[in-house]
Amino acid sequence: MKKKLLKLLSLSVIVACTIATLSGCGSQKQASGNDEKVVNVFTWANYVPDSVIKEFQNKTGIKVNYSNFSTNEEMLTKLQAAKGAEYDVVICSDYIIEVMGKQKNILMQPIDKSKIPNYKNVDPRFLNQLYDKGNKYSIPYTLGSQIIVYNSEKVKIPIKGYKDLWNSTLKNSLVLVDDPRIVIGMTLKKLGYSMNETDSKKLAQAKEELKKLKPNVKVLNADTPHNSLINGDATVGFMYGSQASTAVKTNSKFKIVYPEEGMNAEEDNFIIPVKAPHKENAEKFINFMLDGKISNEATTINQYVNTNKAAKKFMSSSYLNDKAVFIPDSELNRAERFRDVGNAAKTYDLIWSEFKQQ
């Protein structure tokens, strides 16, 4: 009788342990989702400063896995390959958001702004743009623009706009940001056309114009084109204002030019991919980045135009007086924004490929 009772007790213990083990596995599996203390951020290199990432991690206990891309097109290719999974927060440009919004299988999910109370800090001037009316999928992070910067000691011709970059005296002297929309857009603007041109004849003209520019181009660099100016490999550059600012701070001989043909302005935005594995952590990260003090810290370091009205009270005089970063409203108001060029994107890719192989 005792042996039979012991067997029954042993069986009960085994069953109880099995249930407990299975329950533990279930909890562990659940913890690997939104409860996991991880957020996967995908954007350009150094776009979210290390100090800001550390502050977020210290405040929330959520580890940031940071991955980077060089162009919006590269980002889209990788996001498509992942089918809107793998990443939790992507920071990318306005026109590529417009492209994604038109796709049959949208790779972004609508953002629940009730989970992001600091959304109220975004300057209304940068909301409700054509690429995402009502900001259903996106929230502005910063605004970027490209400008000309040159070495005033070595360049002896006046530089006022894009057209001057074609001057034969600048042979083997230029560094350009390695981005098809930016460089082709600059060329179209030089010809008097829109940066978003889709007319095949005008794009053919731009292609021929780029061929004429190639002898002047020494370096194409997406992430650090300013280094070519600083180390003397190039004397003139066309790059993001943040990159130009770094060059100017290194040496006062570098001068900034707002192209007389008109600048480009592009808003970079937070989006959450449709299958983000840690959606709640993504919301926490975006909300943290929209805090006024944090927003100011980010743009002070990455040197982009700040789109956060709550950040203004924290801005330093050096940031406000940086011509490469704090671009006057008179320039921004006439700047052209990139748009989705539809099927013409294939033509842009072909032009760029031939240009780089030339």
Rank of each mutant, 00 (worst) to 15 (best):
residue 58 N to L: 08
residue 58 N to T: 09
residue 59 K to Y: 02
residue 62 I to E: 09
residue 63 K to Y: 08
residue 64 V to Q: 00
residue 64 V to P: 00
residue 65 N to I: 09
residue 65 N to M: 07
residue 67 S to P: 01
residue 67 S to I: 05
residue 71 T to R: 11
residue 72 N to E: 07
residue 72 N to R: 05
residue 74 E to Y: 09
residue 74 E to T: 12
residue 75 M to P: 12
residue 79 L to P: 02
residue 82 A to D: 06
residue 82 A to V: 06
residue 84 G to R: 01
residue 85 A to C: 15
residue 85 A to F: 13
residue 86 E to A: 15
residue 86 E to L: 14
residue 86 E to C: 12
residue 87 Y to A: 12
residue 88 D to C: 12
residue 90 V to Y: 07
residue 91 I to D: 10
residue 92 C to P: 13
residue 93 S to A: 13
residue 93 S to G: 13
residue 94 D to L: 12
residue 94 D to E: 13
residue 94 D to G: 13
residue 102 K to H: 10
residue 102 K to N: 14
residue 103 Q to R: 14
residue 108 M to E: 03
residue 108 M to N: 03
residue 109 Q to A: 14
residue 112 D to C: 13
residue 112 D to Q: 11
residue 113 K to Y: 08
residue 114 S to G: 13
residue 116 I to K: 06
residue 116 I to V: 10
residue 117 P to V: 00
residue 117 P to Q: 00
residue 118 N to T: 06
residue 119 Y to L: 05
residue 121 N to Y: 00
residue 121 N to M: 00
residue 125 R to G: 13
residue 125 R to C: 11
residue 127 L to T: 06
residue 127 L to I: 04
residue 128 N to I: 00
residue 130 L to T: 07
residue 130 L to P: 03
residue 131 Y to Q: 01
residue 131 Y to S: 02
residue 132 D to E: 07
residue 134 G to E: 00
residue 134 G to W: 00
residue 134 G to Q: 00
residue 135 N to C: 03
residue 135 N to H: 02
residue 138 S to E: 00
residue 138 S to R: 00
residue 140 P to F: 03
residue 140 P to Q: 05
residue 141 Y to Q: 10
residue 147 I to T: 08
residue 147 I to R: 06
residue 147 I to V: 14
residue 149 V to N: 07
residue 149 V to W: 08
residue 149 V to Q: 07
residue 149 V to C: 11
residue 150 Y to D: 01
residue 150 Y to T: 02
residue 150 Y to G: 02
residue 150 Y to W: 04
residue 152 S to D: 08
residue 153 E to L: 12
residue 154 K to T: 15
residue 155 V to F: 03
residue 155 V to D: 04
residue 161 G to D: 10
residue 163 K to E: 09
